[in-house]
């Protein structure tokens, strides 16, 4: 069972933004879904390793970067080639 405060903590960890009005609804849904996920408790761990390809590389060869316009085009605000982000201090 997760509580509303657990869900609020997860929301912060995920930087998702959750309103007080949504907490009860999300918590209820999470508990239903997590209860279903508990099925996995019956799965035994085998220590098998995965299969598939390994060692997929590229060579250390320079490829063109994007033109600055292309970089800034989708960014909201920019300043002297920098992209603007919210303050961190």
């Amino acid at each position: 069972m997760v509580s509303e405060s657990d869900v609020a903590h997860i929301a912060i960890l995920a930087d998702i933004g959750i309103g007080d009005d949504e907490l009860a609804e999300f918590t209820g849904q999470f508990n239903a879904i997590l209860e279903y996920f508990d099925l996995l408790d019956q799965v035994e761990e085998s220590g098998r390793s995965g299969t598939g390809t390994t060692n997929i590389f590229r060579d250390d060869e320079i490829a063109p970067s994007l033109p600055l316009d292309g970089v800034l085009e989708n960014a909201g605000e920019s300043e002297a080639g920098y992209i603007r982000a919210p303050k961190v201090m």
Binding site: I12, D15, I16, G17, A85, P86
Partner: peptide, 11 residues
């Protein structure tokens, strides 16, 4: 600041 701004934006 960025944490609050991200949360607001993503919500």
């Amino acid at each position: 600041s960025w944490h609050e701004a991200y949360q607001e934006h993503r919500r």
